[in-house]
Nucleic acid binder design. Structure first.
Lengths: 224, 224
DNA sequence: CGGCATCCGTGACGATACTG
DNA sequence: CAGTATCGTCACGGATGCCG
């Protein structure tokens, strides 16, 4: 057992970095924010991580109460890793990091790996920023590279997931990665992107209206 | 020159971690948020970092536009490091990390180092959370271990600094480290701490009133 | 003395091979 | 499928030396 390397500082930031400051840890959290994952899936979506490091990080995260391992019921003889509530609380950390990283345009290098759900975090931030407070709903996002869905306004709950929305979404977005990156970086507004046809937005509920910048219904019908 | 280790992922979070994910980097940013620092001061306030790693990180941060090196005018034949605007933009990242790390109480280990200004970040978050939006002012914080000051509501500007406030502060706080940690962790409210005498709050401006939970200026000053 | 560069021992990391 | 074992390499931490 590794005695846990620490900065040994009486500082909440340093203590946070003791837990999630190691290489790969926050990226594993990013993956698990999309929902429970098997070891092999994690390994496939984190190109470059070695098997032993991945196993080691997952053990550390279990020990630190960030993630748990769960055996799936018999038909599937597999186990999945998922975030604990404490682990999901790292969402603001990833949002802050992602927001900072998105501020510099950064074209895509040919060696860069890509996964569709990596855009979920920036898009979630964008949508929750553009829609007013209290808005919530399910958004399905379609890119050439894949489909995922976002739970807008879920707060502490699950943030997003891979694949199509589990029910009829309140909003559907079609766009490409480059547009998505520019939206996240702030040098393109959602309204402008829709006008230019770079984003196709479909949906009729309150969330869709809020994103289109329309005024809310005169008498808000006591929505919860 | 090291060709810069990267996760090689087309993801803003991963790119952020390419720049600030290395060991010690974010803690150096935390130090520089308190203002310009000399190499030796950084080394003294970051126990455990080796000299070459510190030098290497500072070079990386310069290359990445996070920090700059500046020679002081002749009388002081020294140079200081300071954050660029891009580096100061990391404040929300440190806030998110610190907030997450403060959520677990965590008593102080005897081996833990302590610096007074490490409490600036949590206190700043607490004050900006308790006072309403738009409040701003200068706060001087006194602990047994040292004195520092906070620029509340400065937003992107300088967040805090070591030592006494450079002018008469709008608010003065006296407290001890343990109380500060509990305030940051959320298991003690500022009001309660003042009532219990664990925090002495002095000041008469709008900021002080806002923190005391009083109604804003319209109300007459009928207190004590 | 401040600001590193160098050297060295240890541990973390990355790639591959192997096993229940 | 889900890791463990092995190994070469590199990053880190500590000490010391150099140079202005």
């Amino acid at each position: 057992m590794s005695p846990r390397r620490s900065y040994d500082q009486h500082c909440s930031t340093a203590r946070a970095l003791d837990a999630v400051g190691d290489r790969w840890t926050l990226l594993i959290v990013r993956e698990l924010l999309a929902g429970p994952r098997r070891y092999t899936d994690l390994h496939a979506d984190l190109p470059g991580v070695s098997t032993d490091v991945l196993a080691s990080r997952l053990k550390d995260m279990e020990r630190d109460g960030i993630a748990t391992r769960r055996r799936l019921p018999p038909p599937a003889a597999a186990s999945v890793y998922e975030l604990t509530p404490r682990g999901r609380d790292l969402l603001p950390v990833l949002q802050a990091l992602g927001g900072w990283g998105a501020a510099v345009p950064a074209e895509r290098s040919p060696t860069d790996a890509v996964r569709a759900h990596w855009l979920a975090l920036p898009l979630l931030r964008l949508i929750e920023g553009n829609a007013g407070r209290g808005q919530q709903g399910l958004v399905e996002v379609r890119l050439d590279e894949g489909v995922f869905h976002l739970w807008v306004g879920a707060g502490e709950g699950a943030a997003y997931g891979d694949g199509a929305a589990p029910r009829e979404p309140d909003l559907r977005l079609d766009l490409d990665m480059d547009t998505c990156a520019r939206l996240g970086g702030g040098d393109l507004t959602l309204d402008q992107a829709v006008l230019d046809g770079m984003v196709v937005m479909a949906g009729e509920g309150a969330l869709a209206d809020a994103l289109r910048g329309r005024p809310l219904p005169a008498a808000p019908t006591s929505a919860s």
